[in-house]
Computed example of a mutant assay.
Amino acid sequence: MFMRFRTTALAMAAFATAAPALADEVNVYSYRQPELIKPLTDAFTEETGIKVNVAFLEKGMVERLQAEGDRSPADVVLTVDISRLAGVVEAGLTQPVTSETLEANVPAQYRDPDNNWFGLTTRARIVYASKERVADGEVTTYEDLADPKWKGRICIRSGTNAYNVALTAAHLYHHGEEATKAWLEGVKANLARKPQGNDRAQVKAIWAGECDISVGNTYYMGKMLEDPEQKEWADSVRIVFPEFEGHGTHVNISGVAMTKAAPNKENALKFMEFLTSPKAQEIYGAANYEYPIAPGTEPVELVKGWGEFSADPVNLMELAKLRPAALKLIETVDFDG
């Protein structure tokens, strides 16, 4: 029996002795938390009669799939961040999927050019700005973050965090190595404190008066607003959608891929197609305050109220290729030092 569990030694042993997958089910390895997945899996089962078994992993998806090899019961992987999607693909653990439905539902910039993964929802990497201390229009581009006028006014999490590495990779894509190094040095010089904490901690620091702006993902605003302790932090800031000069706002994704070993390939494809449908996209987007990407879909009213933006049109796989170089630059300037 395929169980939902965290990756512990006991769970790994239980999984290794699991019975063969049945024809009326699909098995999922997920980096997304169970509460975010359940509304989708329930809706899929109700529509198709196919049972969805989810194994929630906190880390180690690539290593686990490699260890299981061709005997892996996993049909599909669900994850966030382009680096994790690219990592599964680069390890040779996925298979390309040909589907007119997937191609129609997922814009080209949000799917692998070789059809190994498909995006589901997006989140923008934005600026949280103090309502009291930052005027409208004071920051409009990512390049602005290196302007000396922000000296001592920026809070940010570690430069080596996956989200910030992706943002740096986007800067590298648009501006090249020399300009990106100078940008990182400029942002570092403007920091109010050493990089630390998560995205929510940066908003808390703005609320506390430690800095005036921070960089974070859009969905954290929704998460903070639903938390009585953190709502005051959220109310102290507004969301600004900066752009790369001449391009657009940097976004990252949640996505899905079919495993190379997939024992229930037909059901896996049905599940992937369902996840990209307008119905599932809106469920998924609402669960985590993200932006659905299927044509004709819209975010929930709260998310829509944060404002409109134009996403950077670069294919995210291009950014994934630049992540090692971006990380090297972050370490070269000792961003976290």
Rank of each mutant, 00 (worst) to 15 (best):
S236G: 04
G197W: 12
L184G: 08
R133F: 03
V240E: 00
N161C: 07
T140P: 05
D199P: 09
P242H: 02
D114R: 13
D147G: 01
R200H: 06
E178C: 07
Y173D: 09
A201G: 07
G197E: 08
I239G: 00
Q196W: 11
Y219R: 03
E177W: 09
A234W: 02
N161I: 05
T180N: 11
I126D: 02
R111H: 11
E185I: 06
L120M: 15
V139I: 15
A182N: 11
T140N: 11
Y220P: 01
T141Y: 13
P113N: 06
V187P: 07
I126P: 05
A170R: 14
Y142C: 08
Y220S: 05
Q109I: 12
G152T: 06
S158Y: 10
Q202S: 09
K149V: 08
K188C: 07
I126K: 02
N217D: 15
A208L: 11
V134I: 14
S214I: 01
A182K: 10
A234Q: 00
H171N: 13
Q109Y: 11
F241A: 03
D114W: 09
L172F: 02
V187I: 13
V187G: 03
W233R: 01
L120P: 02
A166I: 13
K223D: 15
F244G: 08
L225C: 05
P148L: 11
D136L: 10
L167A: 15
H175R: 15
H174G: 04
E232C: 00
I213L: 13
D144P: 03
Y220K: 07
V203E: 07
S130N: 06
A234I: 00
D235W: 01
V203Q: 03
R238E: 00
F241K: 01
A162K: 08
Y219Q: 11
K188S: 10
V165E: 12
R153S: 09
N116G: 07
E243T: 14
E138H: 10
E226G: 01
V240K: 05
L184H: 06
A169D: 06
Q202I: 01
G216T: 05
G159N: 01
E243I: 07
K194H: 05
N190A: 10
W150Y: 13
K231Q: 04
A201S: 12
L191M: 12
G186D: 08
E132Q: 12
D199Q: 10
Y128K: 04
D199S: 14
Y219M: 08
E226R: 03
